[in-house]
Each structure stands twice: as C-alpha cells, then as structure tokens.
C-alpha cells in the first residue's frame, strides 16, 4: 500500500497537500475509490480531478499518478 501512495513533492510548495495514487496492475477507478472513500460509486470524483490525464473513466494505465481529492 505504501508503495502505491506517493505524496509527490513539488519542491517549491512544502504545503502541497495533494494525495496521489500510482496505478498498479488490476486497479480500476472503482477499486481506487473504494479504497480511499470506502465507496466505489464515488469514482467520478477521482476521474474529474484527473481529466488532464484521463479521457475515459474505464481506461487507466499502470504507472499513472492520479490525484485523489
């Protein structure tokens, strides 16, 4: 779990409180949502927070770093 969660330091912003999740094999937005929110149906929050890198909520790639709002 610790390997997947990464608080990416921005260098200039020591107070950046953004939480990230690095996608691993088998992940879906539903599963990620279940893990962080307890409820998979809230996956749209993650999708909307990552629209710069995600075009389809059903397509995520291993290694992508997703913001978890």
């Amino acid at each position: 779990m610790a390997e997947e969660e990464t608080n990416v330091p921005s260098g200039s912003d020591a107070f950046d409180a953004t939480q990230y999740h690095e996608v691993v094999s088998g992940d879906t937005l539903w599963k990620i949502s279940e893990r962080y929110y307890g409820d998979g149906s809230l996956y749209k929050n993650i999708f909307e927070a990552n629209q710069d890198i995600l075009k389809d909520p059903n397509v995520i790639k291993v290694g992508q770093k997703l913001r978890i709002p």
């Binding site: 953004t18 962080y36 307890g38 409820d39 809230l42 929050n45």
Partner: peptide, 30 residues
C-alpha cells in the same frame, strides 16, 4: 509561509470530508 500553506491543507481536508460525507460506507481504516 503559514498563510500560503494552511489553506491548502484545510482545503484538502475539506475536499475529502465533502466526498466521504456522500459515501455509503467509510473506508476500512476510518
């Protein structure tokens, strides 16, 4: 430093609280 940083922390907490408030059940560790 604090006035630039704290709103980001509080904002992140508020965001998570808002989302969790809509959850049918809470995460396993909460």
């Amino acid at each position: 430093t604090l006035s630039e940083g704290l709103p980001k922390m509080v904002g992140a907490i508020q965001s998570r609280v808002d989302i969790l408030s809509k959850a049918k059940k809470l995460p396993a560790n909460l």
